[in-house]
Design a binder for these strands. Structure first.
Length: 529
DNA sequence: CATGTCACG
DNA sequence: ACGTACGTGACATGA
Protein backbone atom coordinates (compact mmCIF):
# COMPACT_ATOMS: atom_id res chain seq x y z
CA UNK A 1 0.00 0.00 0.00
CA UNK A 2 1.28 3.43 -0.98
CA UNK A 3 0.56 5.00 2.38
CA UNK A 4 2.63 2.38 4.22
CA UNK A 5 5.59 3.20 1.96
CA UNK A 6 5.18 6.93 2.53
CA UNK A 7 4.45 6.74 6.24
CA UNK A 8 8.12 6.77 7.39
CA UNK A 9 8.78 9.85 5.27
CA UNK A 10 5.63 11.61 6.42
CA UNK A 11 6.34 10.88 10.08
CA UNK A 12 10.02 11.85 9.95
CA UNK A 13 10.34 15.27 11.59
CA UNK A 14 13.83 15.63 10.13
CA UNK A 15 12.38 15.74 6.60
CA UNK A 16 10.86 19.21 6.19
CA UNK A 17 7.48 19.46 4.45
CA UNK A 18 6.17 22.24 2.23
CA UNK A 19 2.45 22.37 1.65
CA UNK A 20 -0.62 24.48 1.08
CA UNK A 21 -3.00 24.49 4.08
CA UNK A 22 -1.11 21.73 5.88
CA UNK A 23 -3.62 21.60 8.72
CA UNK A 24 -5.91 19.86 6.26
CA UNK A 25 -3.27 17.28 5.35
CA UNK A 26 -2.45 16.71 9.02
CA UNK A 27 -6.08 15.94 9.78
CA UNK A 28 -6.63 13.73 6.72
CA UNK A 29 -3.52 11.68 7.53
CA UNK A 30 -4.45 11.53 11.22
CA UNK A 31 -7.64 9.73 10.14
CA UNK A 32 -5.36 7.02 8.74
CA UNK A 33 -3.20 6.94 11.88
CA UNK A 34 -0.34 8.77 10.18
CA UNK A 35 1.28 11.59 12.17
CA UNK A 36 2.54 14.18 9.71
CA UNK A 37 5.73 15.68 11.17
CA UNK A 38 8.28 18.21 9.97
CA UNK A 39 5.59 20.65 8.88
CA UNK A 40 7.93 23.54 7.97
CA UNK A 41 6.45 25.80 5.30
CA UNK A 42 2.77 26.39 4.61
CA UNK A 43 2.38 28.55 1.50
CA UNK A 44 -1.07 29.68 2.61
CA UNK A 45 0.48 31.11 5.78
CA UNK A 46 3.45 32.57 3.89
CA UNK A 47 0.93 34.52 1.83
CA UNK A 48 -1.05 35.49 4.93
CA UNK A 49 1.98 36.74 6.85
CA UNK A 50 3.15 38.70 3.78
CA UNK A 51 -0.24 40.34 3.33
CA UNK A 52 -3.10 39.41 5.61
CA UNK A 53 -5.46 41.70 3.72
CA UNK A 54 -5.24 39.75 0.44
CA UNK A 55 -8.75 38.57 -0.33
CA UNK A 56 -7.85 34.88 -0.59
CA UNK A 57 -4.88 32.68 0.21
CA UNK A 58 -6.00 29.49 -1.54
CA UNK A 59 -3.61 27.82 -3.97
CA UNK A 60 -5.49 28.73 -7.15
CA UNK A 61 -5.48 32.44 -6.27
CA UNK A 62 -1.82 32.38 -5.20
CA UNK A 63 -0.76 30.61 -8.41
CA UNK A 64 -2.49 33.22 -10.50
CA UNK A 65 -1.19 36.13 -8.44
CA UNK A 66 2.44 35.09 -7.94
CA UNK A 67 3.13 32.70 -10.85
CA UNK A 68 0.71 34.01 -13.43
CA UNK A 69 -0.43 30.42 -13.72
CA UNK A 70 -4.01 29.15 -14.09
CA UNK A 71 -4.34 25.87 -12.22
CA UNK A 72 -6.62 22.92 -12.97
CA UNK A 73 -9.52 23.46 -10.60
CA UNK A 74 -11.04 20.70 -8.52
CA UNK A 75 -14.34 21.22 -10.35
CA UNK A 76 -12.60 20.53 -13.66
CA UNK A 77 -11.67 17.01 -12.60
CA UNK A 78 -14.48 16.12 -10.21
CA UNK A 79 -17.38 18.17 -11.55
CA UNK A 80 -19.53 20.34 -9.33
CA UNK A 81 -22.86 20.46 -7.55
CA UNK A 82 -24.85 17.25 -7.40
CA UNK A 83 -22.86 15.75 -10.30
CA UNK A 84 -19.61 16.02 -8.37
CA UNK A 85 -17.84 12.67 -8.01
CA UNK A 86 -15.46 11.49 -5.33
CA UNK A 87 -11.78 12.10 -6.10
CA UNK A 88 -11.24 8.33 -5.96
CA UNK A 89 -13.58 8.01 -8.96
CA UNK A 90 -11.64 10.46 -11.12
CA UNK A 91 -9.77 8.65 -13.93
CA UNK A 92 -6.16 8.08 -12.90
CA UNK A 93 -4.64 10.12 -15.75
CA UNK A 94 -6.66 13.18 -14.79
CA UNK A 95 -6.17 12.63 -11.08
CA UNK A 96 -2.42 12.30 -11.53
CA UNK A 97 -2.18 15.50 -13.54
CA UNK A 98 -4.22 17.36 -10.95
CA UNK A 99 -2.27 16.00 -7.98
CA UNK A 100 1.12 16.49 -9.60
CA UNK A 101 0.30 20.05 -10.52
CA UNK A 102 -0.75 20.63 -6.91
CA UNK A 103 2.64 19.55 -5.62
CA UNK A 104 4.54 21.41 -8.34
CA UNK A 105 2.67 24.68 -7.88
CA UNK A 106 2.97 24.55 -4.10
CA UNK A 107 6.74 24.19 -4.25
CA UNK A 108 7.03 26.97 -6.81
CA UNK A 109 4.88 29.20 -4.64
CA UNK A 110 7.14 28.53 -1.69
CA UNK A 111 10.20 29.40 -3.79
CA UNK A 112 8.55 32.68 -4.71
CA UNK A 113 7.02 33.59 -1.35
CA UNK A 114 9.81 32.61 1.03
CA UNK A 115 12.46 35.04 -0.32
CA UNK A 116 9.93 37.86 -0.04
CA UNK A 117 9.19 36.91 3.53
CA UNK A 118 12.89 36.55 4.36
CA UNK A 119 13.41 40.24 3.57
CA UNK A 120 11.66 41.06 6.85
CA UNK A 121 13.21 39.36 9.90
CA UNK A 122 10.20 40.13 12.12
CA UNK A 123 7.90 38.38 9.65
CA UNK A 124 10.21 35.36 9.57
CA UNK A 125 10.03 35.12 13.36
CA UNK A 126 6.26 35.56 13.30
CA UNK A 127 6.01 32.80 10.70
CA UNK A 128 8.48 30.36 12.26
CA UNK A 129 7.76 30.93 15.94
CA UNK A 130 4.01 31.55 15.88
CA UNK A 131 2.07 30.64 12.73
CA UNK A 132 3.82 27.37 11.76
CA UNK A 133 4.00 25.87 15.27
CA UNK A 134 0.30 26.66 15.64
CA UNK A 135 -0.70 24.53 12.65
CA UNK A 136 -0.53 21.07 14.27
CA UNK A 137 -2.01 22.50 17.47
CA UNK A 138 -5.09 23.81 15.67
CA UNK A 139 -5.36 20.49 13.87
CA UNK A 140 -5.39 18.72 17.21
CA UNK A 141 -7.97 21.06 18.77
CA UNK A 142 -10.21 20.42 15.77
CA UNK A 143 -9.83 16.66 16.08
CA UNK A 144 -10.43 16.84 19.84
CA UNK A 145 -13.83 18.43 19.26
CA UNK A 146 -16.34 19.38 21.95
CA UNK A 147 -18.92 17.21 23.67
CA UNK A 148 -22.50 18.47 23.35
CA UNK A 149 -25.57 17.58 25.44
CA UNK A 150 -27.92 16.87 22.53
CA UNK A 151 -30.99 16.14 24.67
CA UNK A 152 -30.65 19.48 26.42
CA UNK A 153 -30.51 21.36 23.11
CA UNK A 154 -33.46 19.43 21.68
CA UNK A 155 -35.54 20.29 24.73
CA UNK A 156 -34.54 23.95 24.34
CA UNK A 157 -35.53 23.84 20.66
CA UNK A 158 -39.00 22.55 21.55
CA UNK A 159 -39.46 25.25 24.20
CA UNK A 160 -38.25 27.97 21.84
CA UNK A 161 -40.63 26.71 19.16
CA UNK A 162 -43.61 27.15 21.50
CA UNK A 163 -42.59 30.62 22.56
CA UNK A 164 -41.90 31.71 18.97
CA UNK A 165 -45.38 30.58 17.90
CA UNK A 166 -47.00 32.50 20.76
CA UNK A 167 -45.12 35.68 19.88
CA UNK A 168 -45.98 35.22 16.21
CA UNK A 169 -49.71 35.02 16.95
CA UNK A 170 -49.60 38.11 19.13
CA UNK A 171 -47.56 40.07 16.59
CA UNK A 172 -49.97 39.23 13.78
CA UNK A 173 -52.86 40.37 15.96
CA UNK A 174 -51.25 43.73 16.71
CA UNK A 175 -50.10 44.17 13.11
CA UNK A 176 -53.61 43.42 11.93
CA UNK A 177 -52.35 40.95 9.35
CA UNK A 178 -50.34 37.77 8.93
CA UNK A 179 -46.76 38.55 7.99
CA UNK A 180 -43.35 36.88 8.11
CA UNK A 181 -41.50 38.34 11.11
CA UNK A 182 -38.24 36.97 9.70
CA UNK A 183 -38.60 39.23 6.70
CA UNK A 184 -37.21 42.75 7.24
CA UNK A 185 -39.14 43.81 4.12
CA UNK A 186 -42.50 42.68 5.50
CA UNK A 187 -41.71 44.20 8.92
CA UNK A 188 -40.99 47.52 7.22
CA UNK A 189 -44.36 47.42 5.49
CA UNK A 190 -46.24 46.71 8.70
CA UNK A 191 -44.33 49.12 10.96
CA UNK A 192 -43.74 52.06 8.66
CA UNK A 193 -46.45 51.83 5.97
CA UNK A 194 -49.37 50.32 7.82
CA UNK A 195 -48.85 51.47 11.44
CA UNK A 196 -46.98 54.66 10.45
CA UNK A 197 -44.25 54.39 13.06
CA UNK A 198 -41.45 56.98 12.63
CA UNK A 199 -38.41 55.97 10.54
CA UNK A 200 -35.43 56.55 12.84
CA UNK A 201 -32.67 55.13 10.66
CA UNK A 202 -32.10 53.79 7.18
CA UNK A 203 -30.00 50.87 5.98
CA UNK A 204 -27.01 51.45 3.67
CA UNK A 205 -29.30 50.87 0.68
CA UNK A 206 -31.84 53.43 1.84
CA UNK A 207 -34.47 51.08 3.28
CA UNK A 208 -36.14 51.95 6.56
CA UNK A 209 -34.11 50.01 9.11
CA UNK A 210 -35.64 47.49 11.50
CA UNK A 211 -32.31 46.82 13.28
CA UNK A 212 -32.18 46.14 16.99
CA UNK A 213 -31.29 49.62 18.26
CA UNK A 214 -34.08 51.13 16.15
CA UNK A 215 -36.68 48.69 17.45
CA UNK A 216 -35.43 49.26 21.03
CA UNK A 217 -36.16 52.93 20.59
CA UNK A 218 -39.59 52.31 19.05
CA UNK A 219 -40.44 49.77 21.74
CA UNK A 220 -40.61 52.61 24.26
CA UNK A 221 -43.74 53.91 22.54
CA UNK A 222 -45.26 50.94 20.66
CA UNK A 223 -45.93 47.27 21.48
CA UNK A 224 -45.03 45.55 18.18
CA UNK A 225 -41.29 46.35 18.03
CA UNK A 226 -40.79 44.61 21.40
CA UNK A 227 -42.43 41.46 20.06
CA UNK A 228 -40.33 41.53 16.91
CA UNK A 229 -37.20 41.82 19.01
CA UNK A 230 -38.22 38.87 21.17
CA UNK A 231 -39.07 36.86 18.08
CA UNK A 232 -35.68 37.63 16.55
CA UNK A 233 -33.77 36.73 19.70
CA UNK A 234 -35.54 33.41 20.08
CA UNK A 235 -35.43 32.38 16.43
CA UNK A 236 -31.74 33.28 16.25
CA UNK A 237 -31.06 31.00 19.21
CA UNK A 238 -33.13 28.22 17.71
CA UNK A 239 -32.03 28.30 14.08
CA UNK A 240 -28.34 29.00 14.65
CA UNK A 241 -27.67 27.08 17.84
CA UNK A 242 -30.21 24.72 19.40
CA UNK A 243 -31.37 23.25 16.06
CA UNK A 244 -28.01 23.39 14.31
CA UNK A 245 -25.42 22.16 16.82
CA UNK A 246 -26.95 18.67 17.21
CA UNK A 247 -26.84 18.30 13.41
CA UNK A 248 -23.13 19.12 13.47
CA UNK A 249 -22.17 16.21 15.73
CA UNK A 250 -19.79 13.82 14.02
CA UNK A 251 -21.33 10.33 14.38
CA UNK A 252 -17.89 8.72 14.59
CA UNK A 253 -16.69 10.80 17.53
CA UNK A 254 -19.99 11.92 19.02
CA UNK A 255 -18.57 15.44 19.24
CA UNK A 256 -18.69 18.74 17.35
CA UNK A 257 -15.56 19.60 15.35
CA UNK A 258 -15.15 23.21 14.21
CA UNK A 259 -12.61 24.42 11.63
CA UNK A 260 -10.25 27.17 12.68
CA UNK A 261 -9.24 29.45 9.84
CA UNK A 262 -5.73 30.76 10.24
CA UNK A 263 -5.55 32.96 7.14
CA UNK A 264 -8.83 34.88 7.12
CA UNK A 265 -8.86 37.72 9.66
CA UNK A 266 -6.78 40.72 8.56
CA UNK A 267 -5.70 41.48 12.14
CA UNK A 268 -4.13 38.08 12.83
CA UNK A 269 -7.04 36.61 14.74
CA UNK A 270 -8.31 33.11 14.10
CA UNK A 271 -11.83 32.55 12.91
CA UNK A 272 -14.05 29.53 13.48
CA UNK A 273 -16.55 27.99 11.08
CA UNK A 274 -18.76 24.94 10.46
CA UNK A 275 -19.87 25.49 13.13
CA UNK A 276 -18.63 28.83 14.44
CA UNK A 277 -17.79 28.15 18.09
CA UNK A 278 -16.54 31.70 18.64
CA UNK A 279 -20.01 33.24 18.74
CA UNK A 280 -21.88 30.97 21.13
CA UNK A 281 -24.25 33.18 23.17
CA UNK A 282 -23.12 34.47 26.58
CA UNK A 283 -24.54 37.96 27.11
CA UNK A 284 -28.07 36.94 28.12
CA UNK A 285 -29.34 34.30 30.54
CA UNK A 286 -31.41 32.88 27.69
CA UNK A 287 -28.32 32.48 25.54
CA UNK A 288 -26.15 31.05 28.29
CA UNK A 289 -28.41 27.99 28.44
CA UNK A 290 -26.79 27.02 25.15
CA UNK A 291 -23.37 27.08 26.80
CA UNK A 292 -24.71 24.70 29.42
CA UNK A 293 -24.91 22.13 26.63
CA UNK A 294 -21.13 22.33 26.06
CA UNK A 295 -20.14 19.62 28.51
CA UNK A 296 -17.21 17.53 29.67
CA UNK A 297 -17.03 13.74 29.35
CA UNK A 298 -17.78 11.76 32.52
CA UNK A 299 -14.89 12.12 34.97
CA UNK A 300 -13.77 15.34 33.27
CA UNK A 301 -14.28 19.06 33.83
CA UNK A 302 -14.36 22.12 31.60
CA UNK A 303 -11.72 24.80 32.31
CA UNK A 304 -12.06 28.26 30.83
CA UNK A 305 -9.09 30.64 31.00
CA UNK A 306 -9.39 34.15 29.60
CA UNK A 307 -7.21 37.22 29.46
CA UNK A 308 -8.58 40.13 31.48
CA UNK A 309 -8.82 43.40 29.50
CA UNK A 310 -6.11 42.24 27.14
CA UNK A 311 -6.56 44.93 24.49
CA UNK A 312 -6.56 47.82 26.96
CA UNK A 313 -3.47 46.37 28.61
CA UNK A 314 -1.81 46.27 25.20
CA UNK A 315 -2.86 49.88 24.68
CA UNK A 316 -1.25 50.74 28.04
CA UNK A 317 1.93 49.01 26.93
CA UNK A 318 2.12 50.37 23.38
CA UNK A 319 1.20 53.92 24.36
CA UNK A 320 3.41 54.02 27.43
CA UNK A 321 0.76 56.17 29.10
CA UNK A 322 1.68 56.50 32.77
CA UNK A 323 -1.86 56.83 34.07
CA UNK A 324 -3.24 53.84 32.22
CA UNK A 325 -0.23 51.74 33.21
CA UNK A 326 -0.71 52.79 36.82
CA UNK A 327 -4.30 51.56 36.81
CA UNK A 328 -3.25 48.13 35.61
CA UNK A 329 -0.23 47.85 37.90
CA UNK A 330 -2.47 48.54 40.87
CA UNK A 331 -4.80 45.83 39.56
CA UNK A 332 -7.64 48.34 39.64
CA UNK A 333 -11.00 48.03 37.90
CA UNK A 334 -9.86 49.92 34.80
CA UNK A 335 -13.29 51.30 33.88
CA UNK A 336 -13.68 52.65 37.41
CA UNK A 337 -10.21 54.16 37.28
CA UNK A 338 -11.02 55.79 33.94
CA UNK A 339 -14.27 57.15 35.35
CA UNK A 340 -12.46 58.63 38.35
CA UNK A 341 -9.96 60.37 36.07
CA UNK A 342 -12.41 61.64 33.47
CA UNK A 343 -15.05 62.81 35.95
CA UNK A 344 -12.49 64.08 38.44
CA UNK A 345 -13.72 62.16 41.47
CA UNK A 346 -12.22 59.67 43.90
CA UNK A 347 -12.36 55.96 43.05
CA UNK A 348 -15.04 55.44 45.69
CA UNK A 349 -17.11 58.34 44.34
CA UNK A 350 -17.62 56.71 40.95
CA UNK A 351 -21.30 56.08 40.22
CA UNK A 352 -22.72 53.29 38.08
CA UNK A 353 -23.44 55.76 35.29
CA UNK A 354 -19.94 57.20 35.41
CA UNK A 355 -18.45 53.73 35.18
CA UNK A 356 -20.76 52.77 32.31
CA UNK A 357 -19.73 55.88 30.38
CA UNK A 358 -16.06 55.25 31.07
CA UNK A 359 -16.43 51.68 29.86
CA UNK A 360 -17.92 52.92 26.59
CA UNK A 361 -15.02 55.35 26.23
CA UNK A 362 -12.52 52.56 26.78
CA UNK A 363 -14.23 50.43 24.17
CA UNK A 364 -14.31 53.42 21.86
CA UNK A 365 -10.56 53.85 22.24
CA UNK A 366 -9.94 50.30 21.10
CA UNK A 367 -12.14 50.91 18.07
CA UNK A 368 -10.48 54.17 17.06
CA UNK A 369 -13.28 56.22 18.62
CA UNK A 370 -15.01 59.18 17.09
CA UNK A 371 -17.25 61.50 19.09
CA UNK A 372 -20.08 60.55 16.76
CA UNK A 373 -19.72 56.83 17.46
CA UNK A 374 -19.46 57.40 21.20
CA UNK A 375 -22.53 59.65 21.15
CA UNK A 376 -24.53 57.00 19.34
CA UNK A 377 -23.40 54.30 21.75
CA UNK A 378 -24.23 56.33 24.84
CA UNK A 379 -27.31 57.99 23.29
CA UNK A 380 -26.02 61.44 24.17
CA UNK A 381 -25.37 64.63 22.19
CA UNK A 382 -22.31 64.66 20.01
CA UNK A 383 -20.98 67.72 21.84
CA UNK A 384 -21.25 65.87 25.15
CA UNK A 385 -19.43 62.89 23.68
CA UNK A 386 -16.74 65.22 22.33
CA UNK A 387 -16.34 66.65 25.81
CA UNK A 388 -15.77 63.15 27.19
CA UNK A 389 -13.18 62.43 24.51
CA UNK A 390 -11.37 65.71 25.22
CA UNK A 391 -11.40 65.03 28.94
CA UNK A 392 -10.08 61.52 28.41
CA UNK A 393 -7.20 62.69 26.26
CA UNK A 394 -6.35 65.42 28.75
CA UNK A 395 -6.06 62.82 31.51
CA UNK A 396 -4.27 60.22 29.39
CA UNK A 397 -1.97 62.27 27.13
CA UNK A 398 0.18 59.24 26.33
CA UNK A 399 -2.83 57.55 24.75
CA UNK A 400 -3.57 60.64 22.68
CA UNK A 401 0.02 60.75 21.43
CA UNK A 402 -0.09 57.07 20.58
CA UNK A 403 -3.26 57.51 18.56
CA UNK A 404 -1.75 60.39 16.63
CA UNK A 405 1.54 58.58 16.05
CA UNK A 406 -0.27 55.48 14.84
CA UNK A 407 -2.44 57.47 12.46
CA UNK A 408 0.59 59.34 11.08
CA UNK A 409 2.60 56.14 10.69
CA UNK A 410 -0.27 54.47 8.86
CA UNK A 411 -0.49 57.36 6.41
CA UNK A 412 3.25 57.40 5.86
CA UNK A 413 3.89 53.63 5.56
CA UNK A 414 0.53 52.37 4.32
CA UNK A 415 0.52 49.73 7.05
CA UNK A 416 0.63 49.29 10.84
CA UNK A 417 2.28 46.57 12.93
CA UNK A 418 1.64 44.54 16.05
CA UNK A 419 4.15 44.17 18.87
CA UNK A 420 5.54 41.12 17.04
CA UNK A 421 5.81 42.85 13.66
CA UNK A 422 2.68 41.40 12.08
CA UNK A 423 1.61 43.83 9.36
CA UNK A 424 -1.78 45.08 8.37
CA UNK A 425 -1.88 47.00 5.10
CA UNK A 426 -4.43 49.79 4.84
CA UNK A 427 -5.10 50.35 1.17
CA UNK A 428 -7.59 53.14 1.79
CA UNK A 429 -5.53 55.10 4.34
CA UNK A 430 -4.87 57.86 1.79
CA UNK A 431 -8.20 57.59 -0.04
CA UNK A 432 -9.74 60.83 -1.25
CA UNK A 433 -13.13 59.59 -0.03
CA UNK A 434 -13.23 60.87 3.54
CA UNK A 435 -15.53 58.14 4.84
CA UNK A 436 -13.23 55.39 3.59
CA UNK A 437 -10.12 57.17 4.76
CA UNK A 438 -11.48 57.62 8.27
CA UNK A 439 -12.58 53.99 8.37
CA UNK A 440 -9.00 53.01 7.49
CA UNK A 441 -7.71 55.29 10.26
CA UNK A 442 -9.91 53.56 12.81
CA UNK A 443 -8.74 50.17 11.56
CA UNK A 444 -5.14 51.43 11.85
CA UNK A 445 -5.67 52.25 15.52
CA UNK A 446 -7.53 49.03 16.30
CA UNK A 447 -5.21 46.61 14.49
CA UNK A 448 -2.12 46.89 16.72
CA UNK A 449 -4.26 46.07 19.78
CA UNK A 450 -6.47 43.38 18.30
CA UNK A 451 -3.51 41.93 16.41
CA UNK A 452 -1.09 41.92 19.35
CA UNK A 453 -3.75 40.18 21.44
CA UNK A 454 -4.01 37.57 18.68
CA UNK A 455 -0.21 37.14 18.66
CA UNK A 456 -0.17 36.70 22.44
CA UNK A 457 -2.88 34.05 22.64
CA UNK A 458 -1.30 32.14 19.75
CA UNK A 459 1.97 32.08 21.68
CA UNK A 460 0.05 30.97 24.75
CA UNK A 461 -1.54 28.10 22.81
CA UNK A 462 1.91 26.94 21.73
CA UNK A 463 3.23 27.15 25.30
CA UNK A 464 0.20 25.34 26.74
CA UNK A 465 0.35 22.65 24.06
CA UNK A 466 4.00 22.06 24.84
CA UNK A 467 3.28 21.85 28.55
CA UNK A 468 0.40 19.42 28.01
CA UNK A 469 2.58 17.17 25.84
CA UNK A 470 5.54 17.10 28.22
CA UNK A 471 3.56 16.86 31.46
CA UNK A 472 1.41 14.02 30.15
CA UNK A 473 -1.55 15.58 31.97
CA UNK A 474 -4.93 14.05 31.09
CA UNK A 475 -6.25 17.23 29.46
CA UNK A 476 -7.15 18.51 26.01
CA UNK A 477 -7.40 21.99 24.56
CA UNK A 478 -10.82 22.12 22.88
CA UNK A 479 -11.57 25.76 21.92
CA UNK A 480 -10.10 29.22 21.37
CA UNK A 481 -12.34 32.28 21.51
CA UNK A 482 -9.96 35.22 20.82
CA UNK A 483 -9.00 35.93 24.44
CA UNK A 484 -10.10 32.64 25.98
CA UNK A 485 -8.84 29.05 25.90
CA UNK A 486 -11.10 26.15 26.87
CA UNK A 487 -9.94 22.73 28.09
CA UNK A 488 -11.43 19.39 29.03
CA UNK A 489 -9.50 17.98 31.97
CA UNK A 490 -9.60 14.81 34.07
CA UNK A 491 -11.00 15.76 37.48
CA UNK A 492 -7.82 14.66 39.26
CA UNK A 493 -5.69 16.97 37.08
CA UNK A 494 -7.82 20.11 37.23
CA UNK A 495 -5.81 22.08 39.79
CA UNK A 496 -2.44 21.33 38.21
CA UNK A 497 -3.56 22.12 34.68
CA UNK A 498 -5.37 25.26 35.78
CA UNK A 499 -2.21 26.74 37.25
CA UNK A 500 -0.03 25.59 34.36
CA UNK A 501 -2.39 27.17 31.83
CA UNK A 502 -2.42 30.39 33.81
CA UNK A 503 1.37 30.42 33.95
CA UNK A 504 1.67 29.79 30.20
CA UNK A 505 -0.84 32.51 29.34
CA UNK A 506 0.57 35.20 31.65
CA UNK A 507 4.17 34.34 30.76
CA UNK A 508 4.03 34.69 26.97
CA UNK A 509 5.35 38.25 27.05
CA UNK A 510 6.70 40.77 29.52
CA UNK A 511 4.68 43.91 28.88
CA UNK A 512 4.96 47.10 30.90
CA UNK A 513 1.74 46.04 32.62
CA UNK A 514 0.94 42.58 33.96
CA UNK A 515 -1.11 40.08 31.97
CA UNK A 516 -3.95 38.75 34.10
CA UNK A 517 -5.84 35.52 33.42
CA UNK A 518 -9.19 34.62 34.97
CA UNK A 519 -10.08 30.95 35.20
CA UNK A 520 -13.21 28.96 35.97
CA UNK A 521 -14.01 25.27 36.24
CA UNK A 522 -17.31 23.45 35.86
CA UNK A 523 -19.20 20.56 34.33
CA UNK A 524 -20.13 22.78 31.38
CA UNK A 525 -18.85 25.87 29.61
CA UNK A 526 -21.36 28.17 31.31
CA UNK A 527 -20.37 26.98 34.78
CA UNK A 528 -16.71 27.45 33.91
CA UNK A 529 -17.25 31.19 33.50
C1' DC B 1 -26.09 35.56 -4.49
C1' DA B 2 -26.86 40.11 -2.12
C1' DT B 3 -29.03 42.09 1.85
C1' DG B 4 -30.29 42.74 6.58
C1' DT B 5 -29.80 41.17 10.91
C1' DC B 6 -27.45 39.42 15.02
C1' DA B 7 -24.37 36.00 17.70
C1' DC B 8 -19.34 36.60 19.70
C1' DG B 9 -14.52 39.03 21.26
C1' DA C 1 -22.39 68.30 4.32
C1' DC C 2 -20.86 64.11 4.80
C1' DG C 3 -21.94 59.61 8.07
C1' DT C 4 -18.75 55.50 11.45
C1' DA C 5 -17.47 52.88 16.22
C1' DC C 6 -12.87 47.31 15.26
C1' DG C 7 -12.81 42.17 13.77
C1' DT C 8 -15.49 37.80 12.44
C1' DG C 9 -19.60 33.76 10.57
C1' DA C 10 -24.43 32.17 9.94
C1' DC C 11 -29.16 32.56 9.19
C1' DA C 12 -33.61 33.75 6.51
C1' DT C 13 -35.42 36.24 2.84
C1' DG C 14 -36.17 37.40 -1.80
C1' DA C 15 -34.51 38.44 -6.21
Amino acid sequence: MVLKKLQPLLEDAARPKVGQNLKYDINVLANYAVQLRGVRYDTMLESYVLDSTASRHDMDSLALKYLGYKTITYEEVAGKGKNQINFSEVPIEQAAAYAAEDADVTLRLHETLWPRLAENPALVTLFEDIEMPLVPILAEIERNGVRIAVDMLRAQSRELERRILDIEREAHAIGGQVFNISSPKQIQEVLYDKLNLPVLKKTPTGQASTAEDVLQELALDYPLPRLILEYRTLSKLKSTYTDKLPEMINPKTGRVHTSYHQAVAATGRLSSADPNLQNIPVRTAEGRRIRQAFIAAPGYKILSADYSQIELRIMAHLSGDAGLQQAFRGNQDVHRATAAEVFGVGLDQVTEEMRRNAKAINFGLIYGMSAFGLARQLKIERAAAQAYVDLYFARYPGVKDFMERTRALAHQQGYVETLFGRRLYLTEINASNQVRRQAAERAAINAPMQGTAADLIKRAMIAVSHWLATSGADAKMIMQVHDELVFEIAESAVDTVREAVRACMTGVAQLDVPLVVDTGVGDNWDQAH
